[in-house]
Amino acid sequence: MKKRHTLVVLVEDHPGVLNRVVSLMRRRSFNIDSITVGHSEQPGVSRMTLVVVGRDDEVEQVGKQLYKLMEVLKVQDLTEANAVSHELAMVKVAAKAQHRAEILQVAQIFDAKVVDATPSSLLIEAVGSEDRIDNLLTMLKGFGIRELVRTGAVAMARGAQATAIKDGRAERETVIVANGSAGMAT
């Protein structure tokens, strides 16, 4: 069964790393829903959040193939249950005077902020899960969305444990095999 997986990928911050990751996904026919890249807490290490849709064994293959890239230090599949996955959206909504109050009300329901305003528009910034942003957009659609940008998800596991690289070394901690049989080889 295909489902959405959120992968955290820690990579060395070298030129061309993003290209290597994206090229790998393309040539292996893995579909990327979204990808975000930025700094991590460790100097020299960038953190990517990849959202991919696929069967468990397909996504496991994504992880294994990613590990074959020299710059990839760690890959972790965060399941929805124990991770926070958020994206940021900015929406420029047509806002005539008679709709303004209503739009602000919608924004308030979604904890969204108005970051810019003109006599005819509002620029609204929202942070939240993909579903939540989808819902906000559904609500705003009727007023007229003039421009929209979404970042794609960034994610982090809940709890005290961190997705990080110990001792500055990469961890290939698991070799899980597809089809559910057999186990971990540490």
């Binding site: 064994d57 496991e60 293959q61 294994k64 193939q65 590990y67 074959k68 290939r172 070799v175 095999v177 597809a178 089809n179 049989s181 057999a182």
Partner: peptide, 10 residues
């Protein structure tokens, strides 16, 4: 490791 389970169930 990427070869394990890639083409054939293992």
């Amino acid at each position: 490791p990427a070869e394990l389970g890639k083409n054939i169930r293992t």
